[in-house]
């Protein structure tokens, strides 16, 4: 059964259409990669799901309940969490306060302590730095914090935008490793990546976007194995 489903979603900003009928399906406990060049509309897909951009047409549903038209707050409280590109940690708040901000919805707030322990378990580094200002963390640590903050909301579906951006190769490995562990904890992950090669290594399935449309959908191996797609859209 589909966890999250987008059907024919069209959306854009200030009258400029960006998405032209996006169909997407995420199942329980899987990692799905959303690939494509810069400006293909990947981030807009995430912003539309998280309610920041309202879809003009089409439907979004979570476990067969409508998400489209809900406010970002309601969408977060239903367990669909968007970890933004560029980390966007709150720089002059401590690490632990950043994490607590992630648990802002009622449901997550009441389970704050347990979740915090789980997140510290996943990211021991964040525990060490818990009282430091987030702005003083390294790029890799900030990415960990951004993901950890997303987990604090106890998500059913975590959408991570460009987690490997600007990270050293070794850190990219660590981040993608975590994505697998998060999936293993029972959370579905939608991974937006420009680093297609690495994303395809961890994802079960992949969607390839161009000009606001889904061009190709299928198993990661099929995407990775299609020379035309590799060359034309993924630059591999």
């Amino acid at each position: 059964m589909a966890l999250l489903e987008l059907t024919g979603v069209e959306a854009g900003y200030a009258g400029v259409q960006v998405l032209w009928g996006v169909d997407l399906e995420l199942r329980e406990r899987e990692i799905v990669a959303l690939l494509g060049a810069n400006g293909a509309g990947k981030t807009t897909v995430l912003r539309t799901i998280s309610g920041i951009v309202k879809p003009w047409r089409g439907g979004i549903s979570l476990q067969e309940q409508h998400l489209d038209g809900l406010s970002p707050r309601e969408i977060v409280s239903r367990g669909v969490i968007h970890v933004p590109e560029g980390r966007h940690v709150f720089p002059r708040m401590s690490v632990v306060d950043n994490l607590r901000a992630g648990a802002y919805t009622e449901r997550a707030w009441s389970h704050q302590r347990e979740t915090l322990e789980d997140v510290y378990g996943l990211f021991p580094r964040l525990y060490e730095r818990r009282s430091q200002f987030a702005g003083t963390l390294s790029g890799g640590e900030q990415q960990m914090l951004a993901i950890g903050r997303g987990l604090m909301a106890r998500p059913k579906c975590l959408m991570i935008d460009e987690p490997s951006l600007g990270l050293a190769p070794k850190l990219v490995d660590a981040v993608l490793d975590l994505v697998i562990r998060i999936r293993d904890l029972g959370c579905t992950v939608l991974l937006v990546e420009q680093n297609a090669q690495r994303a395809l290594e961890v994802a079960e399935r992949a969607y390839v976007m161009e000009h606001g449309r889904i061009l190709f959908a299928g198993a990661s191996a099929a995407v990775a194995g299609d020379p035309a797609i590799r060359q034309a859209y993924l630059g591999l």
Partner: peptide, 23 residues
């Protein structure tokens, strides 16, 4: 307080605070 976290988060990065479900 929780409200204090919301104020600080909003003041530091409003657009990201929205993603936390902060109204």
């Amino acid at each position: 307080t929780k409200f204090g976290i919301a104020i600080r988060a909003t003041s530091q990065d409003r657009d990201t605070a929205v993603l936390m479900g902060i109204d």
